[in-house]
Amino acid sequence: MELLLQGLRKAIEMILSGDPVILEITWRTLKVSLTAIMISTLIGLPAGMMLGLIKFPGRKLILTLINIGMGLPPVVAGLWITLLLWRSGPLSDFELLYTPTAIIIAQTLVSLPIVTGLTATAFQQINEKLIMQIKALGATKIQLVLILLKESRLAILAGIIAGFGRVIAEVGAAMMVGGNISGETRILTTSIVMEVSKGNFDIALALSFILMTIAFLITFCLTYLQQRKRSQ
């Protein structure tokens, strides 16, 4: 208990003192995680919509692979990306290994199946007669898609929230492809692991409180967006 309180005190102290290292790590964490979830949403939303609405050969196989992908261990994703970006790997020319971009790629890889899969499920659940009714109201194809997006916003935002939860908490892949380099690729989760390994439990706890606060605030905003106007 004493350790927890000490950690909390340390967290407040670190935030109030404006510790530049902490601010830098926090900012990088936010930048990397929000970029990754944004990319996942930009790819996963249209892909999930297509998979949910359009029936084509191989659709079930793709959905199965996406569902498997939802359980993809981050370290495995990290390993694949490391191999791809490694000096002798096929994408070595880009020199992305041990950069924040590599972490974004890894986090996108682990969150993309979640956003795509849950979006596809949301669209599969749409009553076909609702689609017919919207068309009958005179909707163009684009208008139809926009209405369906609005109608499915609860489930879509649930997918984005779940995906964000995955990226903000992710450590294995970030450690592997980012290398936890001070001032370059260190983010909150990798810092916590490092501080624990050094025996600095108070700092680790302080960092964990900052991480939880960020996760809480962003999830709260997404949940607010998801639930607004529902209580009328």
């Binding site: 109201l137 005179g138 208008q143």
Partner: peptide
């Protein structure tokens, strides 16, 4: 199709107010 209107057995209303449900066709 925009000269027609259809009402089905299920009312299939959208997740919004009555006003906006009735207005939707004109908005489109």
């Amino acid at each position: 199709r925009r000269k027609f209107a259809v009402a089905l057995q299920q009312s299939l209303l959208l997740d919004t107010s009555v006003y906006h449900n009735i207005a939707i066709g004109l908005k489109l």
